[in-house]
Computed example of a mutant assay.
Amino acid sequence: MSTPDTFTAQMAIGQHTGRWRLYVVIFGALVSQWPEHVFDGDTVPSVQDRSQALNALGYTPVEGPVWDWTEDYFPGDDPAGPVRLIASARVREVAS
């Protein structure tokens, strides 16, 4: 859960691009305005790659390199359908 000074960063593979996308969820902002980074290739980005991408976006993990992974079904709630993996971590803005 995010507090007023923290945000949730999420990473998932794009449904249409096949590339991993990391983004910071900012409530009250349009999804198109969320800071994001798209990784090259289809390999899961390393923890170091994720940290570097977050830093480039102006954020840093709150609890170190801890990412939680969850499963989501695509499309809908069909457990027989393909599974989409989503990683998340708590982050805070880097002081300027």
Rank of each mutant, 00 (worst) to 15 (best):
M11N: 01
V31K: 13
Y73S: 07
A53W: 11
V62W: 08
W69R: 15
G14T: 06
W20V: 00
T60Y: 00
T60P: 00
P65Q: 15
S51W: 01
E93T: 07
Q10M: 13
S96C: 03
V44T: 08
E36N: 12
V47Q: 10
W67A: 06
V24D: 01
G64P: 04
T60E: 15
W20Y: 15
A9Q: 02
Q52Y: 14
D40G: 10
P65I: 04
N55Y: 11
W34R: 10
E71P: 01
S88V: 01
D42V: 02
P61D: 09
H37L: 07
V91H: 02
F7H: 15
A12Y: 08
E36D: 08
T6Q: 01
D5Y: 12
V38T: 11
L54Q: 14
D78H: 03
I86C: 09
T70K: 10
Q48G: 05
H16T: 09
Y23K: 02
Q33N: 14
D77H: 10
L85P: 00
F39G: 06
A53D: 08
G18S: 07
S96D: 08
D68S: 14
G58T: 02
D78S: 05
D77S: 12
P61C: 09
S96M: 02
D40Y: 10
V62K: 12
Y59C: 11
M1K: 08
D77T: 08
V31P: 03
I26C: 12
S88T: 04
A12I: 01
S96A: 13
A80F: 14
E63W: 12
V38E: 12
R50H: 00
E71C: 10
V24K: 01
A87H: 05
A80S: 15
A29N: 04
A56V: 02
Q10F: 11
A9C: 08
E36S: 14
T3H: 09
P79W: 14
D68I: 05
S88A: 11
L85K: 10
R50G: 02
W67V: 02
A80T: 11
G58K: 02
P79G: 14
T3L: 13
Y23W: 03
P4N: 11
L22R: 03
Q48N: 11
P75T: 06
G28S: 11
T8Q: 13
S32A: 15
S2A: 15
W20H: 08
R19C: 05
D72Y: 00
S32W: 09
G18H: 02
P75S: 06
S32V: 08
V91C: 03
P61L: 10
P35R: 08
P82Y: 06
I26L: 13
R21K: 14
V83T: 09
